[in-house]
Simulated assay, not measured.
Amino acid sequence: MKTIARERLVSDLLCLGIAPGDCVMLHSSLSRIGHVDGGAATVVEAFLNAVGEEGTLLTPAFTEGAWVEHLAMPDCRDVCPQPLCPSTFPSHEGAIPNAALNRPGRLRSCHPTHSWVANGADAYEVLKDHMHSPSICGSGNPFEGLCERDGCIVTLGVGVDRITLWHYFEDLTDAPYKGHYHEQERHLSYCTAGRRIQYEFPGVIQDVIRASGIMRFGKVGRAEAGLIKARQFRRFLATVMTADPYCMILRPPDRENGNIAEDAMMKAAAMLQAWRDAAREPPPNVHWYPGKDDDCVREDCPAFAGFHNAETGSIPLCRANGRHPDFFRQGGAFAENGPTTCGRCPWHHRFPKGD
Rank of each mutant, 00 (worst) to 15 (best):
R276G: 07
T113K: 04
F304R: 02
S91C: 07
A268P: 09
C191T: 15
L57Q: 04
R196W: 08
I228S: 02
G145K: 02
Q184H: 14
W67D: 09
C80R: 06
S115G: 07
V68W: 11
P86H: 09
L156P: 02
G291Y: 02
I260H: 05
G159N: 05
S28P: 02
M266S: 12
G179H: 01
F334C: 07
A46W: 00
G52C: 10
A118W: 00
I33V: 05
G157D: 07
R216A: 09
H182Q: 15
P284F: 03
G159M: 01
S29K: 08
G194N: 11
L237F: 07
F334M: 12
R344E: 09
P339E: 04
G34Y: 00
S212F: 09
S212Y: 09
P142A: 00
C76Q: 12
D12A: 03
V286Y: 03
R77V: 05
S189E: 15
Q206A: 02
Y246C: 03
R103Y: 15
A278T: 13
G145D: 00
Y246V: 06
A66K: 08
F169P: 05
A278W: 11
A5K: 11
N285M: 11
D294P: 15
F201I: 04
H35S: 14
E336V: 11
G65K: 03
V43G: 06
P81Q: 14
I315V: 13
R350W: 05
H287L: 10
D244E: 13
